[in-house]
Design a protein around this nucleic acid. Structure first.
Lengths: 184, 184
DNA sequence: ATTTACCTATCTACTAATAGGTAGTATCTT
DNA sequence: AAGATACTACCTATTAGTAGATAGGTAAAT
């Protein structure tokens, strides 16, 4: 892996484990084994690195969307849940969850890119919810977008909340999400 | 209002607007009109202030729980939604949402107190959900606790998400929460 | 009634650590 | 040789936190 990619990956992990304002170039320099000044060669400012992290996640999301095109709506939902399950196991939170609480402190460029990421995620989930409803696999009232926000929101939140309550709540919530969606 | 209370109130606002690691004693000193050293007189360390903020919110919650004892479950739910509605209007996030993303960077004392706050909130919502179900006003499957986590989670998350998507999503989500709960 | 002692709340002035960032130089790879 | 990558050596700003002084008020002791 290139140094650049390694820096992005580490920054991503740090942002989601500690928050944007709690990670520093020094944290990354220790982990990569280069000096902080060398990180500035790859990313002139911290905001540039932040944008790169968001863009990398957007890439990953787009790859998943492409890969999952032929999957059943239920498999897509399971995949979505799996992503958040892994985030919880790693004792992290999702990128949107982390950066949205710090939103007023980050550069406009990060906000802009994060917004694109959130909308893309929302669109993907909305579509497979609607697809599932058309196929009679999912049952829900109202707009797919609203339901997508609620499901993503539940996953985003349970990852954050289960840090305080009980990790076992995650399984209970995701089971209920599926049950609610499948039950007529 | 005493200086101490003013400091707590300002810290609370700053934590929920910018995040724990993005607010400083200097921010508060400017707003209160005293020097940073004077804040250390009231709160020896930043963690002490953080704990005080959480404790103050716990007090407020307990006052609400007491005040709402004789309310209908539906009125309690509306009140819960109103709290989050106000948070969104103020361009802030909820305390649990903010501190849970920074959880790995704050002192154990803050974590401990925040956990108490989250459990208290969860207990209150669980109870009025169950109460509503017994009265035939609410309809849902599964444990009240799980449902409470999902509703609180949805509110916590929509406040964060609507910073990125659209403020109008808040109303759509809260309407759907209520509809889901009331519909047989 | 005055003094002594203490308390509260603030100040000035400082420290040590950490932050993000820059300039110029060296090294490695192609 | 040239470009990519990393280095040393800084800089400036900000951070949380400390020490010591001051001023005003309170309360008990003389």
């Amino acid at each position: 892996m290139t140094t650049r990619k390694e820096i992005i990956q580490l920054a991503d992990g740090l942002i989601r484990a500690k928050g944007y304002n709690a990670f520093s170039f020094y944290d990354i320099s220790k982990a990569v084994g280069i000096k902080t000044a060398s990180i500035h060669y790859h990313f002139p400012s911290k905001s540039d690195l932040g944008v790169a992290v968001v863009d990398r996640q957007l890439e990953t999301l787009n790859e998943l969307i492409l890969k999952s095109e032929k999957w059943t709506p239920l498999k897509k939902l399971d995949q979505l849940i799996n992503i958040y399950s892994k985030i919880m196991d790693d004792d992290k939170v999702c990128l949107v969850g982390s950066l949205s609480t710090d939103l007023n402190t980050v550069d406009e460029s990060i906000r802009k890119h994060l917004k694109v990421f959130a909308e893309q995620m929302l669109e993907w989930v909305s579509k497979f919810l609607e697809e599932g409803r058309e196929q009679g696999v999912f049952h829900f009232e109202g707009l797919p977008r609203t339901r997508a926000i609620m499901i993503i929101g539940n996953l985003l939140a349970i990852v954050q909340l289960s840090r305080l309550t009980d990790k076992r709540d995650f399984k209970k919530v995701t089971s209920t999400i599926k049950k609610d969606l499948i039950t007529i």
